[in-house]
Each structure stands twice: as C-alpha cells, then as structure tokens.
Computed example of a mutant assay.
Amino acid sequence: MHQFLVDQDSIQRAYLRHWNFSNPEYITTLLQIAGNVEEGRDEYLAALNTAESVQEYDVTPIHDRSFYVYIRESAQGFASRLRALLTDTDLLIVPPIEYGTHGEMLFEVAGEQDALQSLVANLPDHLSVSVNRLSEYDAYRESQVTALTDRQEEVLDVAREHGYYEIPRQTSVREIADELGCSKSTAANHLRKTEARLVALYEDRSAKK
C-alpha cells in the first residue's frame, strides 16, 4: 500500500493514526487517507483488496478530501516487523505515522536519546534513517509530520519568488518547472501536494481552536 502511494497522484498522503498490537494473530490499525478522494478512493480500495495480509477493513468518509480506513491485518511480513519496531523499545511513538509519496515514513518519538540511538542501530541494513530534530517534547507544537519536505519547500520558495501566488499570477507552472529542472507535470504534482499539506496544517490548527 505504501508503494501504491508512490505510484499514483490522487492519494497524496496516508496517516497511521492509531494501532493495536495486543492480539498475536493480527494487528488492527486506523489510517486517514487524504487527497483527491473522488478520483483516488476506489483505486486505493482496489489496491487494498489485493493485499494478502488484509483480513477485513471498513471505510468511514470524512469529507471530500479524506477518509478513514479501519484495517485488521494478519501479523506477518511488514506488519510483524512494524509490531516489533513499535513494541520492542522504551521509546514512545507519537501518532500519527505518515507514509510519504517518496517511500518514506515520518514520525516522532519521545524518550531517551540512548534508546533512540539503539533503535536506529538495530534497524535492518536496507533501511536508512534521517533524524530531523532533537528537542524537548512539546505536545502543543505542530508535529514534524505536518512539515513540508525539503523538495516541497524548494518548490514553494520558487513559486513564491516568481509570483505564482500573486494576483494576477506572475508566472506559470512551466516556468516553475524550468527553474526546478523538472517536467511540467512533476512541478504541478509537487505544487498540489505542497498546497494539500498546507491546507491540512490549517485544518489541524482550526480544529484545536
């Protein structure tokens, strides 16, 4: 399912909001799927139906930009490795875990630095890790998960510098793509995903008021 996010454009992000590993036979998770729901929902569920480990799932609409999926999955393969990662440590994983569209997983942890170093040291060799920030935990600080990626910040900076958000608009997606050295469709995709993240951040802030 993570590869599904990488391969298509309609679904822009997936958040693992909650999980339950208490049963040794299966894992239950609650995900929020966000993006162009009208275009991507059926495609996402079709891909979910092909996942061999998924025993059952239930979908709950939120609005036209996201929906929840409650999943019961057999504790095998990646699910079992995720169970081991999240339970065999003194660290606390702070929800949500974000599945990114470049194959990455973004999440925050709370705990001692030694435990974090031990976790990183014991990860499989095929996984690479980047620690974005070390600081005192603050429950009221915006989660790192909602931050833009480096590439998205670059795209946003170029768009703003060239007047893409001015009225009237001073540049085009083609000109932004030329500045970034990528195709027009890639630049448009980056802009859509960047804007979707900023909208999600606004919605999260509004919900806290």
Rank of each mutant, 00 (worst) to 15 (best):
L123H: 14
F67V: 07
A84L: 01
L106F: 01
S135Q: 10
V54Q: 13
A121V: 08
T60Q: 11
T87W: 04
Q55S: 13
E52D: 14
D125T: 14
L123R: 13
D125V: 13
L116M: 13
R65Q: 14
S143N: 08
L92C: 05
D58N: 10
I71N: 09
L116Q: 09
Y137S: 01
L91P: 00
Q76L: 05
R133V: 14
V59Q: 06
E98Q: 09
V129L: 03
F107A: 07
D114F: 06
V120Y: 01
A139H: 04
Y99E: 06
R133C: 07
E112F: 07
T50I: 14
N122S: 06
N122F: 04
V54N: 15
P95K: 03
S143G: 09
L123Q: 08
R81P: 00
S53K: 15
L134W: 03
Y57D: 06
D42F: 06
Q117S: 15
T146N: 15
S130F: 05
L85R: 10
S130D: 11
G103C: 05
R65S: 11
I97N: 00
Y68R: 03
H63A: 10
L91Y: 01
S130R: 12
T146V: 03
L106P: 02
H63F: 13
G77Q: 00
T60C: 05
D42V: 12
R65W: 11
S80D: 11
F107P: 00
E104K: 01
